[in-house]
């Protein structure tokens, strides 16, 4: 089975993000980056499927040069090869624009399965996988926790996936390959790259494709105009002082002001 996993590089979770001088994006200069967490789960699911059924795992990522670091990480965890769609104006493209890039780069590979994380931790659009499926004319299922191949006939497989619904409900959903699944966090346990893996990753193929060569429109249907700080919904009383002082002050407030103790 040929599985492609689309991964995104996002600012590290604990990174301090600041609005840049244009007011339209964040300051990138000193940011640390990491693999988007749901994408890491998608990669893990792909690697486990390969371990069970054989085949190939290819990662694809679009973004500037720095993205190659996240691609190497995926290769070190066990992906076989990678495609880097080099794109320096990712933030100016909308979800459709980015999906068009990915779809154009994925199409010639004709994968049996395409996995993506269900949403990114930076923009949180949560649309890429679903749109790529639409562009490639493939069926999809979203919010998937586990994937199982239940029948195989020649190059076609029947896939059974566990889908998360709201409020602690689930369903299982079946669909034929080739298909697209968007993966939710938590379905399996993430592996770490081994030293051997890191060493091997250096020799694995990373094919670069330039966004401009893919012949897709960059004109967005939706434009991000400004980034602002959120408004507070409540006025929070911050309790200052040492840990002991703040704790004592909080207990006072909870007892005599909020009356919840």
């Amino acid at each position: 089975m040929k599985i492609i996993v689309a991964i995104k590089q996002v600012p590290e979770r604990d990174a301090q993000v600041h609005i840049d001088s244009s007011g339209q994006w964040i300051e990138e200069a000193n940011l640390q980056y990491a693999m988007n967490e749901p994408d890491a789960y998608a990669l893990e699911e792909a690697l486990q499927l390969k371990e069970k059924a054989g085949g190939e795992v290819i990662v694809i990522s679009t973004g500037p040069e720095r993205v190659s670091q996240t691609i190497r990480e995926a290769l070190a965890k066990g992906a076989d090869r990678a495609i880097h769609v080099v794109c320096d104006d990712l933030a100016a493209r909308d979800a459709l624009g980015v999906a068009r890039l990915l779809a154009a780069a994925i199409q010639p590979e004709s994968p049996d399965l395409l996995l993506t994380g269900l949403q990114s931790e930076d923009l949180g659009l949560g649309q890429t996988g679903v749109i790529v499926a639409e562009l490639l004319g493939l069926p999809h299922a979203s919010l998937i926790l586990q994937v199982e191949i239940i029948a195989k006939e020649g190059s076609k497989a029947q896939i059974k996936a566990r889908r998360e619904l709201e409020e602690g409900w689930f369903q299982s959903i079946e669909l034929p390959s080739p298909a697209v699944l968007t993966i939710q966090s938590g379905g399996n346990k993430l592996r770490y790259a081994t030293l051997m893996g890191i060493k091997r990753a250096k020799t694995k193929e990373v094919r670069t494709v330039h966004a401009a060569d893919l012949g897709v429109s960059a004109a967005p249907a939706v434009a991000l105009e400004a980034i602002t700080l959120p408004k507070k919904q409540k006025s929070t009383q911050i309790l200052n002082g040492s840990a002991e002082e703040a704790a004592a002050a909080l207990v006072e407030k909870l007892k005599f002001e909020a009356r919840v103790l």
Binding site: I19, L123, P220, E225, A226, I227, T228, P230
Partner: peptide
Amino acid sequence: RQLMQGRLNGSYRHAG
């Protein structure tokens, strides 16, 4: 809509 897990807001306009 929210960006960065709620740490920032983004304003969007329909362009097309």
